[in-house]
Simulated scan of single mutants.
Amino acid sequence: MKPRIWLKPTAHVILLIGSIIMLFPFIWSVCTSLKNVNEVFTYPPRFFGEELKFTNYTNMTDRFPIIRFFFNTLKITVIVVVFQLITSSMAGYVFARLRFRFREGLFGLYLATLMVPAQVTMIPTFLLMKYYGLLDSHWSLILPSLVSAFGTFLLRQFFSTIPEALEEAAKIDGCTPFGIYWRIFVPLSKPALATLGIFIMLGTWNDFVNPLVFINSMSKMTLTLGLANMQGLYSTDWPALMAATVITVLPILIVFLSAQDIFVRGVTLSGLKEG
């Protein structure tokens, strides 16, 4: 029994070390954003310079429209999150509760799309956006992301855990299938919806490849693409770049910390039962 006494403290120490390693790049970014340019690459390395340069956060807008990048990313992310939650929850409800012919086969084909690498579909998507004249517009980033096979699978698994007695009671009261979905399944699936929403937000907010392929105009760039353009060919204002990086990371960090409990509960509950 004695060796087990050390298991919990040892696990805590390992987790603490892992947390420090994971947080170190973000901490270094914050510290670098408060330095002078000539204090970034010093030996030995220092966390802080001689004075804290908070002006880096205001000066970074002199060369690049970082505020425009922020609102472009926010607009795209909000639209994608809202529509993916709607489409994924409706499709998940259909595959979890409604009985129709070839349901399992269609669901299997739907899941098979998860095995197709994004690089394979990028060229056909680009050609479609070019055909419809949507290149260099935010619609080229929004339209291909309005549905998600992963989101459908996640919510379908969660909907399968809801007792059928609730659905039967609603049917007896004369509730339509859509009414059952909207009045019973959606309110009960808030943890799963919050979890999926965080996943979608992370993927959309941090997306770099799609904006790089579809967006050319500076005024329509997202934060990730804007950060890449802030790195110069011959010189880079690293404090300003790190300040922009901190601003890019903060919204995601705030959302995750605010919904951490719901996120953990949603991940746990979504895999309780296989449909």
Rank of each mutant, 00 (worst) to 15 (best):
F71P: 06
T58V: 15
P65S: 06
F83I: 08
F69W: 13
V82C: 09
Y57E: 01
N59E: 14
T58R: 10
I67K: 10
N56R: 07
N59L: 11
N59P: 04
I66F: 15
T55A: 13
L74M: 12
I67W: 14
V80W: 03
T61H: 15
V81L: 08
R68K: 14
T58L: 13
T77E: 04
M60R: 02
F71M: 14
N56D: 08
V78L: 13
I66P: 07
T61K: 15
T73S: 15
F69Y: 15
L74E: 07
I76F: 03
T73P: 09
I76T: 05
T61V: 14
F64G: 03
P65Y: 03
Y57F: 10
N59G: 07
F83C: 04
R63A: 12
M60N: 12
I66Y: 15
D62L: 07
R68C: 10
M60Q: 10
F69R: 04
R68Q: 14
P65I: 01
V82D: 06
V82E: 05
T77W: 06
T77C: 05
F71D: 11
F54K: 07
M60S: 09
I76H: 02
K75S: 06
I76G: 10
F83A: 08
T77Y: 02
T73I: 07
P65R: 00
T61L: 15
N72H: 04
F64H: 11
D62Y: 00
V80N: 03
V81H: 06
P65K: 06
Q84R: 13
L85H: 11
T73E: 08
Y57N: 04
F64A: 09
Y57Q: 04
N59Y: 11
F69T: 07
M60G: 09
N72A: 01
I79W: 10
F83N: 03
F70A: 12
L74G: 04
F70Q: 05
I76S: 05
N56C: 10
V78Q: 03
Y57V: 02
D62I: 00
T55K: 12
Y57R: 00
N72E: 03
T58C: 09
Q84E: 13
I79R: 02
Y57S: 02
F70S: 12
I66M: 15
R63L: 13
I66N: 12
T55I: 13
T73K: 02
